[in-house]
Structure formats: C-alpha cells, structure tokens
Amino acid sequence: DGSRWISSRPAFLLPVRVLGKLFRRLFLTRLVALHDAGQLAFFGSMAHLSARQAFVRHLSPVRKKHWVVYAKAPFAGPEAVLAYLSRYTHRVAISNRRLIRFDEAGVTFRYKDYRRDGTDRQQVMTLATAEFIRRFLLHVLPRGFHRIRHYGLLANSARKTSLARARELLNVAAPSE
C-alpha cells in the first residue's frame, strides 16, 4: 500500500513477476523510442512496420504477454556465461572440419569438453544419425534470427567501408598489412 517498507528475504531483491513486468516495460519503451528516432529498419514483408501506428499495433500482443526473467547468479561468474553464449552467437552448430565419419554406425565428430583442460579437452563422439540431426537442429535459429557474425560492423557486404568509417571516427590508423 506504499505506507511502509517491507524487507525481502536475504539475497532476494525482487519477485520474478515484478522483474518480468519491469523488463517488459523498459524493453518495449526503448524499442519504441528507437523506432521513433528512426534507428530501426524494416524490409520485405515487415516494411509496413516503418509506420509508427503499425509498429505499435504489432507490439500490442507482446505487451499482454507474461515475461519471465531468470535472474539466478551464474555458478562460474559472468565471464563463463559470456563465453558460453558467444559459442552460439558467433559460430555455426558444427563445422565440416569437425566431422570425422558418417556411416551405418552414425555420425562421428570432434567436440570440446570445456570441463577438461589440456589435450584431454578434445573428445570424439559417435551418435546415431537421428540423434545427431536432433541435436544439430536444436542449434538452428528460428526464422527471422541471424547469427551475429553475418551482420553489423563486420558484415561481409560492407566490412571494408564500415571499418574505414569506424577508424575515421575513432581517429585510428588502419593496421599495416
């Protein structure tokens, strides 16, 4: 009721529902602000979202969704979380060079066991073909999502121009080749 302070349990800041509502509000408010500032671009079948009214209408169902924020502290610290996520945002699920064999027994491939150190880190695994495909498809991004390495400052289509412009703005010389 706003008349008194009610302390939370130790090591507990906010209920998940409160965090969900807060994050949803902040995310959507800032997303609309980016739209209003002309910082978002829409192409193809989404081009109609360039109009503010269409964009706000498109976000309407999202405003009604129950957002869940998982805010548990990571076991190994934020660096480990960043390392884990970067393996998924900057690489394909499995590169051809890691595939060793494909036969009746299944698919054999190399992988890194990040719980081990040294030469023991590289491991070999064979999975039944159906299981390999199932696991591979877990790493396929949904329609409309793209790997980070294909976009932004280092996008292949404009890499030289983007880097030259960034160096110019930062007043940094290009590295010697």
Rank of each mutant, 00 (worst) to 15 (best):
L141K: 12
Y111R: 12
V69P: 00
R63L: 15
R135W: 07
Y70P: 00
V140A: 04
R143Q: 13
F75W: 03
R101D: 15
K65W: 04
V62S: 09
A51Q: 15
I94W: 02
K72H: 12
H90I: 00
R63F: 13
G118C: 08
L59K: 03
G106H: 04
L59F: 03
L99S: 08
F102T: 10
V69H: 03
A73Q: 13
E79H: 03
D113N: 12
F145C: 11
A71C: 10
A76Q: 09
A128Q: 08
V62P: 00
L85N: 09
L82H: 05
V140Q: 02
T89G: 06
F55L: 08
F132S: 03
F132Q: 03
V62M: 12
A128L: 04
D120H: 06
A51D: 15
T126L: 04
A80E: 13
H90Q: 11
R91L: 10
V81Q: 10
R57E: 14
N96C: 08
K65L: 15
F75M: 07
M125W: 09
V69C: 05
Y111S: 12
Y114C: 08
V62R: 06
L137S: 04
F75L: 15
Q122A: 08
A73W: 03
A93K: 01
H139Y: 09
R101V: 03
H90W: 07
F145P: 00
A93C: 02
G144D: 07
S50V: 08
A130C: 01
A51I: 13
T129G: 02
W67Y: 09
E131L: 09
S95A: 15
V69M: 11
V107S: 01
Y88E: 09
V124P: 00
R87C: 10
T119W: 02
G144L: 11
G118T: 07
R63D: 08
I133R: 05
H139D: 07
P61A: 10
R116Q: 14
A130Q: 05
A128H: 05
R97L: 10
T129V: 08
L141A: 05
G144V: 07
H58F: 15
F145S: 06
F102H: 11
R143N: 06
Y111V: 07
A54Y: 00
D113G: 03
R63N: 14
H66Q: 13
A73T: 13
V62Q: 07
V68L: 14
R121C: 12
A80D: 13
P142L: 11
A130N: 03
K112M: 15
R98C: 11
R143F: 06
F136S: 04
